[in-house]
């Protein structure tokens, strides 16, 4: 690896500021997994078809396998690792657990980010079943048959119930 292919970039990852020299040939998925050890996101297809690598860049959901790492310069990145706080799952994550929406789990980190992006966008709005499906059309799951995932999304969107410890997740504020 020569100096020519290295570039210094700065970004925040799950709220923490990082500056590092990255290989310009790498996708953001590769930098996050290989350079930062954030192996939550998965690389399934590598060509934008399956959504297993979904993350958020400045709160926009993207497939990190077809997103150049250099584009992360000055951006705020969110991956599934940042969703649970202080050992407590986010509301979306908890809904996936409660609804049995996880089987092998390979698609789950990507789905969690897709649902999180959707829930944040739709805050305060009522959404149709069709909108839920369309918002998750970029994520494939080979195990669940989708119905449990659909249920988890619906559950993520219901107003907080007074269950103690579930209603004031710090990550839902922004």
């Amino acid at each position: 690896m020569t100096d020519q292919v290295l570039k210094q970039i700065t970004f925040t990852i799950n709220g923490v500021k990082r500056s590092l020299a990255i290989d310009i040939r790498k996708s953001l998925a590769e930098v996050l997994r290989q350079d930062l050890g954030l192996t939550g996101l998965k690389q399934g297809c590598g060509v934008g078809e399956c959504g297993a690598c979904s993350i958020m860049v400045d709160d926009v959901l993207v497939d990190s396998c077809i997103f150049l790492a250099v584009w992360a310069d000055n951006a705020a990145i969110r991956t599934v690792e940042g969703e649970a706080r202080d050992g407590k799952l986010s509301k979306v994550q908890q809904a996936y657990v409660d609804e049995g929406a996880v089987q092998c789990g390979y698609c789950t980190p990507g789905f969690i980010m897709a649902t999180t992006a959707f829930v944040e966008q739709c805050e305060g709005k009522t959404v149709s079943d069709d909108e839920i499906r369309k918002a998750h059309a970029g994520n494939l799951c080979r195990c669940t048959g989708y119905q449990h995932i659909f249920n988890a999304v619906e559950k993520s969107m219901t107003p907080d119930d007074p269950m103690p410890g579930q209603d004031d997740h710090p990550n839902q504020e922004s």
């Binding site: 959901l61 993207v62 970029g138």
Partner: peptide
């Protein structure tokens, strides 16, 4: 076009 991730980019 595509899915949300594709349309976003």
């Amino acid at each position: 076009v595509g899915g949300p991730q594709i349309r976003n980019v």
